[in-house]
Simulated assay, not measured.
Amino acid sequence: MIVITAPTGNIGSHLLPRLLESAATEEHLRVVVRDPARLPADVRERVEVITGSHGDPEVVDRAFEGADAVFWLVPPDSSLTPEAGFSGFARPAARALADRGVGHVVSVSALGRGTPVADRAGLVTASLAMDDLIASSGVAYRALANPSFFENLLEEADSIREHGVFTDSVDADRKAPLVAVADIAAAAAALLLDRTWTGVDSVPVLGPEDLSPADLARIMTEQFGRPVRYERQSYDDLRTTLVGYGLDQTFVQGIVDMKRAKDDGLDSGVPRTTESSSPTTFEQWCTQVLKPAVLT
C-alpha cells in the first residue's frame, strides 16, 4: 500500500492520477487530506481517504498503518519558522514511520546538499534537515532534490499580462536548472512503484536545461508575441513586500536567504546527466500552462 500526503497540491495532483492509471498499480492507495471534497469524485471512489493534517500524530499513525511506502510533502506554512514548518511538522511522521515499520519514503526536497551555501540557504536548509530527520527513522529514503519550479511563474501571470514584467531576486544572467512539477510527480511515481531501492539518497530532478531569467523573458516574448522583460528585485524590497503580506518574519528571512543562496550557486552543485534530466522544456510548459494563464 502507498500513502500519498498532500494529494491535492501542485505535485500530488499530478502524482495521484499517475498512480491510479499505472498498470503496475495493483496495490491499495491511501491519501491524507484535510478536505476530501477537493479530491475529484472519481478519485475519491478509488482511494482510501484519511481526513486530517499529516502533521497530526494521530492522523499519521493511522495513515501509516500497513503502509509499504509513503509519498511525503510538507505544505508551506508562512506562519511558522522554517524549522517548525519542516522538521517540526515532520517529527510526528518520523515517529510513526518507525512505529509502523514503513519500508520506503519518497519526499519532495531541494537541491543544495553539499554546496558551500547549504547551511545558510533558509528554507532549503530547513528542508535538508527534515530529510535527515525522516531518514533517521530507519526507512529506505529518496529525497527528490528539486530546483525552482516552472510553476512559480504562475504567481507572476497578472504582472506579465498587465505590464509585461516578471520579477525575482537573482541575477538576470544566472543560469540554473528549472523543473515542471509534472516531472517531479513522474519521478516520485517511478520510485513508489518500483521499491527495489534501499538506503538513503537524493534523486536530482533538473529539467532538460539550465535557464536564466533573461532566457525565460526571451522565450515568453516569443511565445506570447509581445515583449516580456525581467526586473531584478532587491532582497530588501523582497523582504518588505513579504512582511507586508503578514508572513512570519523568520519565514520571510528563510525565503530571502534561499534566494540569496540560489544566486550564489545553490542549485548548481549537481551535474546534469541523462538520469537527472527530466523531459518537459520551458517552451512546452509555457505553451501548455503559462500562456493560457497570461493571455486569457
Rank of each mutant, 00 (worst) to 15 (best):
A23V: 13
H14R: 15
T287Y: 13
D77I: 00
A90T: 00
V70N: 00
D215A: 07
P17Y: 14
G12C: 08
R95C: 00
T274M: 11
L216C: 11
G138E: 02
R46D: 15
F64K: 04
S212V: 11
L211E: 11
D201H: 12
L29W: 14
V289G: 09
E83K: 01
A190E: 13
G114M: 10
A135K: 02
L290N: 06
S53Y: 02
A217M: 07
V60H: 00
R91Y: 01
Y235A: 13
D131S: 03
P76E: 09
L123M: 05
L20W: 11
R18M: 14
D77M: 04
V59N: 00
E48G: 10
T51L: 09
A217C: 07
R91P: 01
Q223Y: 04
L111Q: 04
A157I: 05
R62F: 01
V60A: 01
P213K: 09
T198K: 12
S276R: 03
P36A: 14
Y235L: 15
A189N: 11
A176M: 13
F71R: 00
P177E: 13
H104Q: 12
H14I: 12
A187C: 08
H54I: 00
E156D: 14
G265Y: 10
V170G: 02
R30D: 10
S13D: 09
F89L: 00
